[in-house]
Computed example of a mutant assay.
Amino acid sequence: MEELEFENSPSKEIDEETLFIVTQTFKALGDPTRVRILHLLFQKECSVNEIADTLDIRQSTVSHQLRFLKNLRLVKYRRAGTTLYYSHDDEHVMLILKQMIDHACHS
């Protein structure tokens, strides 16, 4: 098996900010609703209404989860008139999510 190399030397401690970001990102990926939203946004850009309709989730729940994901910079948005369109904002996290989905489907 190939040995993993981290950007920072393995002998160094992880600084507090990095540790916080890593744990919050895993927390984000530990929630089924957020995983469903990220999976959808990996496929296409969507408005809150489109996310709510596609995933059959209340708009208030979608907005709450998007705010959490946006604060972690996992999603971004663009405004078109009065509508906000969301998309994923971190290829690294999306790769992790894809690998975990592939891993779960591999049986």
Results as ranks from 00 to 15, higher is better:
residue 68 F to V: 04
residue 34 R to T: 08
residue 53 D to L: 10
residue 36 R to C: 13
residue 61 T to S: 07
residue 54 T to R: 06
residue 86 Y to P: 04
residue 97 L to S: 01
residue 35 V to Q: 10
residue 60 S to V: 10
residue 76 K to R: 15
residue 72 L to V: 04
residue 8 N to H: 15
residue 85 Y to R: 01
residue 58 R to Y: 10
residue 63 S to D: 03
residue 40 L to F: 09
residue 74 L to I: 01
residue 64 H to R: 12
residue 26 F to H: 09
residue 52 A to T: 07
residue 12 K to Q: 14
residue 9 S to Y: 12
residue 64 H to P: 01
residue 48 V to H: 03
residue 100 M to G: 06
residue 20 F to M: 11
residue 93 V to A: 00
residue 59 Q to C: 11
residue 4 L to T: 13
residue 7 E to C: 13
residue 25 T to P: 02
residue 70 K to E: 03
residue 68 F to S: 07
residue 5 E to F: 15
residue 102 D to I: 07
residue 54 T to Y: 07
residue 107 S to W: 13
residue 56 D to C: 09
residue 31 D to C: 02
residue 60 S to Q: 14
residue 77 Y to F: 05
residue 97 L to Q: 02
residue 37 I to S: 04
residue 43 Q to E: 14
residue 10 P to R: 14
residue 91 E to W: 07
residue 29 L to Q: 00
residue 25 T to M: 08
residue 31 D to T: 08
residue 69 L to M: 00
residue 35 V to L: 10
residue 25 T to H: 06
residue 58 R to Q: 11
residue 19 L to Y: 11
residue 56 D to Y: 02
residue 69 L to V: 03
residue 31 D to M: 00
residue 26 F to N: 10
residue 100 M to R: 12
residue 36 R to H: 10
residue 103 H to F: 15
residue 10 P to F: 10
residue 5 E to H: 15
residue 52 A to V: 05
residue 65 Q to I: 02
residue 8 N to P: 09
residue 107 S to M: 14
residue 13 E to C: 09
residue 105 C to P: 08
residue 1 M to G: 14
residue 18 T to E: 13
residue 26 F to Q: 09
